[in-house]
C-alpha cells in the first residue's frame, strides 16, 4: 500500500494490520539485540574511557598529561566521523575480527566505535562537575584514588551519568536504524526495504511507531531512574 495511490487514512489503518507487522516483528528482535549488545559495550567502554579522560587531566586525581592528550585526540577523531562513514570504515575491521564484513555482529563494531567516544565525553563532563570538596573529604579520611573513583566520583555523579547514558542509548537506537542499510538487518532495514524500495508505506509507518515507542521508553526509564536517586538525596 503506497501513499502515492492510497489515501493517508487507509495506509494509516493498514499499518495496524498484522500483515504489516509480519516481517517487522523479527526485525524488532534484531534491533533489540543490536541495541542491547552495543549499549553494554558502550556503557563499559564509555565509563572506562571517560574515567581515564577525567582522572588523567592536569587537575585530575592521577594527572598523566600525555595519556590524556592522546586519548582526547583519538576520541575527537572518532567523534568527527559521521555515523555512516564510521559504518563503512569499520567493514574491513569487522572482516579482520569476525571474518565477515556484514551482518549484525559486524555492525555492532561500528556502532560501538561511534558510541563509546560519544558516551565517554558525556561521562567525562559529568565527572568533571563533581564538587572538589567531596573529593577532598574522601582524601582527608585516607581513601585511595581507586576508592575515590568508585566510592565517591561515580556515586556522586550517578544521576547525571544515567542521564548521559540515556542520551547514548537513544543515539545507539538511531544509529542502529542507519546500520540496517549495511546488512545489519533490524527495523532500519525493514523501513528502507519496504518503505522505500517497495512503497509499502504501512510497514514504514509501523517501523516508525516502534522506533518512537522505543525512544520514549528509554527516555522515560532514564528520567525515572535519575529522579529516584535525586529524590533519595533530597536534591529535588
Amino acid at each position: 500500500m503506497s501513499l502515492l495511490n492510497t489515501p493517508f487514512w487507509e495506509v494509516f489503518l493498514a499499518s495496524f494490520d498484522p500483515a504489516a507487522w509480519k516481517s517487522l516483528v523479527p526485525a524488532i528482535w534484531e534491533t533489540l539485540y543490536m541495541v542491547g549488545i552495543t549499549c553494554v559495550i558502550t556503557l563499559v567502554g564509555g565509563v572506562i574511557l571517560g574515567l581515564i579522560l577525567t582522572v588523567t587531566n592536569t587537575f585530575g586525581l592521577l594527572p598523566i598529561v600525555w595519556l590524556n592528550r592522546s586519548l582526547s585526540a583519538v576520541v575527537n577523531c572518532l567523534r568527527s566521523l559521521p555515523q555512516m562513514i564510521m559504518i563503512i570504515l569499520m567493514i574491513p575491521v569487522a572482516r579482520m575480527i569476525l571474518g565477515k564484513a556484514y551482518g549484525v555482529n559486524a555492525c555492532i563494531i561500528a556502532l560501538a566505535a561511534s558510541c563509546i567516544p560519544m558516551f565517554a565525553r558525556l561521562v567525562e563532563s559529568s565527572l568533571l562537575e563533581i564538587e572538589k570538596g567531596k573529593v577532598d573529604a574522601a582524601k582527608a579520611m585516607g581513601s585511595s584514588s581507586f576508592q575515590i573513583i568508585f566510592r565517591i566520583m561515580i556515586p556522586e555523579t550517578l544521576p547525571s551519568l544515567i542521564r548521559g547514558f540515556t542520551v547514548a542509548i537513544i543515539a545507539v537506537i538511531s544509529m542502529t536504524a542507519l546500520a540496517g542499510n549495511f546488512g545489519a538487518g533490524g527495523i532500519g532495514d525493514i523501513a528502507v526495504r519496504f518503505g522505500f524500495q517497495r512503497f509499502q508505506h504501512e510497514v514504514l509507518f509501523a517501523a516508525v511507531y516502534v522506533l518512537v515507542a522505543l525512544v520514549q521508553l528509554v527516555q522515560f526509564a532514564g528520567d525515572a531512574a535519575s529522579k529516584i536517586l535525586l529524590k533519595k538525596r533530597h536534591l529535588i
Binding site: G133, K134, M141, S144, Q147, E156, L229, R233
Partner: peptide, 28 residues
C-alpha cells in the same frame, strides 16, 4: 587518615546515610 579534617562547608556525602557517612573513614 592520621590528620582528620572537618570542613568549613559541611561536606557530608549526600548519597550516604548519616551512619554510612560516619563509617566512611573506616571503610576507606
Amino acid at each position: 587518615s592520621e590528620r582528620g579534617y572537618v570542613f568549613q562547608h559541611v561536606n557530608l556525602f549526600p548519597w550516604f546515610t548519616v551512619e554510612q557517612n560516619i563509617a566512611a573513614g573506616l571503610k576507606a
